[in-house]
Every structure is written in structure tokens, then in C-alpha cells.
């Protein structure tokens, strides 16, 4: 850990004024403080945003509004969330541990860094941490790494669960800077690594996430968030699937699908969604529709099982969401 300035902001505009290149906003600290201890993140100024008035969970204008400073645990337990979008609650409860969920904020969750063990070790090269230094994960230990959206520079998996649910539900993030607010679909908020894996999202310097807006979906109760991992709790996903499905007399009317644990960002599965529409909700239909989920997948030495596991996970999630066997 390196020496740094510490500042506390009580208003959003204060926070924005305190921000400068090389500064970092501190919310729950469950990623930032960890990575500062490891020297992976070395901000010269840390701005505590915990006192900012970015709280509140409300249903307004056909959308669920979640303040960026709401804690994961509070969002997961909120009755509006559990009734409007149970998938969000489920994704949160399958994340981290109770202690971490009590601290980590929703805004911070969307900003969490990858669990790639090369990113987290400063003795290793890493293009995300030290641009141009190389990517040992390509040829090293890569069982947990991504198969979709990867590049020759980076194969790091995006770690968030709730972001996968948000992308399936077409959530937007509200970003505030000194120029005012802008709203970006979460799917477009994240960048693919390409040749610049250090740039993970479209946030400008000193820009702050203030809110997540999730449109309501009349059939959102027929949904699930499935997380597959070796350990039954307190582990990041090998694969995860956010699925919501609308059925009429057993026929798929509409469907939302996104995957985690496999992509360099939360991965919306539009081609699979299209293939499912109009089909009879049954295992055979689901199995036939999932092939396109792994289009463009680039498996590595140790994660060659992930395309198969992803397809199987989607089928399982659809069976759960549709309530059919």
C-alpha cells in the first residue's frame, strides 16, 4: 500500500470537485481497499463517497431506481426489489458473503475489478494493470477466465453477478460529471478489452455512478439467476445465467438471457433469445436454441469446458425460469 490523500465528500458536487486524475472514489471498499493493500490499485487520493445522498430504492415511471450507494445486502432484501425484480435479489444473494454484502455498494459492485490472479499479483505482467506488459493468463492458469469478448491482450472475466442480471433486464446507469448527468445502458457501459484492457468502462475522469435504473418487466417473476461454481458459496461464477421468460400456453413469447463467468463483460445472449421465441417451452427446445450462445468463443487450455457448461447452464436456467421439466 502506498501513501495517499484521504478526503470525504458530503455532496456529489463536492465529490466531483475533489476528483482528479489518479484519484479513486471509496464506497464499501471491498474491492478498492483489497487491491490497494496488494499495490494493484495505487490511487494518490481516495475520496470517501459514503456520505453522499445516493440512497433510495423506488419504483417510478415504470422503472426500478436504485441509488448507487445502496448496499448489496439492503437491495437484495428490499421488498420492492424482491417483488419487481426477484432476479436482482437472487443474483445479489449468490454474491460474495453476508459481511461483504453489508458493505459493498451497488455502484461499487458495477466497478469491481476482475478476480484474475495475474491482475492481482504485482510480480506478474498484466495488460490491465500495467498496459503493454503482457498477459500471462493466455498461457498460464486460466480455468476461471473468459471465453467470450476476449482479446490477445486480456482474457479476464468480469466478476459481478448483479451486473449480469442488470444487463438481462436492460438496466441503465446514470453517470454524473461536472457537465451534468448522462444515462448509459449498462451493456454499453462496459468496454471489451481489445488492445486497451485497462479501460474497462466509459466513465470519464471524475465521473460518478449515481443511480441504476431497471425498467420493469411484466413477466419478470418468471425469472431466475443461476450461478454454477465449484464451491457452493463465496466463490465467483464459473458460469452464471440470468433468465426471464414469458410464456403463453407453453409457447415462448419473450425471453431475456445474459451470462456471467464467461465474458470479459456481462454477456447478453440475444441470438439465443431470438432462437427461443415461438418455441414450445421444453428441454429439447432450449437445448436446440443454445448453440449460438458460444458463437465466437475462444476457449483456453484450462477452460475448454466452459462452452459446454455455459450451454448446459442456460438450459437449466430456462427450465427453472419457465417452471417446466
Amino acid at each position: 500500500m502506498r501513501a495517499f490523500d484521504f478526503a470525504t465528500a458530503s455532496t456529489v458536487s463536492d465529490a466531483l470537485k475533489l476528483a482528479r486524475p489518479g484519484s479513486a472514489f471509496l464506497a464499501g471498499g471491498t474491492t478498492l481497499v483489497d487491491l490497494m493493500k496488494l499495490d494493484v490499485m495505487t490511487p494518490d487520493r481516495v475520496i470517501d463517497v459514503n456520505a453522499l445522498p445516493l440512497k433510495g430504492i423506488k419504483l417510478r415511471d415504470g422503472a426500478l431506481h436504485i441509488g448507487a450507494m445502496e448496499r448489496m445486502g439492503d437491495v437484495a432484501a428490499h421488498p420492492v426489489v424482491t417483488s419487481v425484480h426477484p432476479m436482482i435479489s437472487r443474483a445479489l444473494l449468490l454474491s460474495a458473503s453476508g459481511q461483504l454484502r453489508n458493505m459493498a455498494s451497488i455502484g461499487g459492485n458495477l466497478m469491481q475489478r476482475t478476480r484474475c490472479d495475474y491482475f492481482r499479483d504485482v510480480t506478474s505482467a498484466c495488460n490491465k494493470r500495467l498496459p503493454g506488459s503482457g498477459c500471462p493468463a493466455l498461457t498460464g492458469i486460466n480455468r476461471g477466465h473468459a471465453i467470450l469478448g476476449t482479446s490477445d491482450s486480456c482474457v479476464a472475466t468480469h466478476a459481478s453477478d448483479v451486473a449480469v442480471a442488470f444487463v438481462a433486464l436492460e438496466a441503465q446507469v446514470v453517470l454524473r460529471s461536472s457537465d451534468g448527468d448522462r444515462t448509459v445502458p449498462l451493456e454499453d457501459f462496459y468496454r471489451l478489452p481489445g488492445s486497451t484492457p485497462e479501460r474497462e468502462n466509459v466513465l470519464g475522469p471524475g465521473e460518478l455512478i449515481t443511480e441504476v435504473v431497471v425498467p420493469t418487466l411484466s413477466w419478470a417473476r418468471h425469472s431466475t439467476y443461476l450461478k454454477i461454481r465449484d464451491r457452493q458459496s463465496y466463490e465467483f461464477a464459473l458460469t452464471s445465467v440470468a433468465a426471464a421468460i414469458s410464456l403463453k400456453r407453453g409457447v415462448v413469447q419473450d425471453v431475456r438471457l445474459a451470462a456471467g463467468g464467461v465474458g470479459t463483460k456481462p454477456w447478453r445472449l440475444r441470438a439465443v433469445e431470438e432462437a427461443l421465441k415461438g418455441g414450445v417451452a421444453m428441454e429439447r427446445t432450449f437445448s436446440d436454441a443454445v448453440e449460438s450462445a458460444v458463437d465466437g468463443a475462444r476457449p483456453l487450455a484450462h477452460n475448454a469446458f466452459k462452452p459446454s457448461l455455459l450451454k448446459r447452464s442456460i438450459v437449466r436456467a430456462l427450465l427453472d425460469a419457465a417452471g417446466v421439466r
Partner: peptide, 29 residues
């Protein structure tokens, strides 16, 4: 049987040398 393995890559570093990446059973297991 089901979880624990420390991985070593060509640099001879144990790559998952932390309690998030080296999996020991939790109560749920």
C-alpha cells in the same frame, strides 16, 4: 476431494495463493 488445488504456472508461482482463489469448503459444502 472436490475443491482444493494450488496451481503453479511456468513462473513457478502458486497463482491462487489466497483464500478466495484456493477453495476450502464453506458450510454450504
Amino acid at each position: 476431494a472436490l475443491l482444493e488445488a494450488t496451481e503453479v504456472d511456468a513462473s513457478a508461482r502458486f497463482t491462487n495463493a489466497n483464500l478466495a482463489s484456493y477453495l476450502v469448503p464453506v458450510h454450504a459444502d
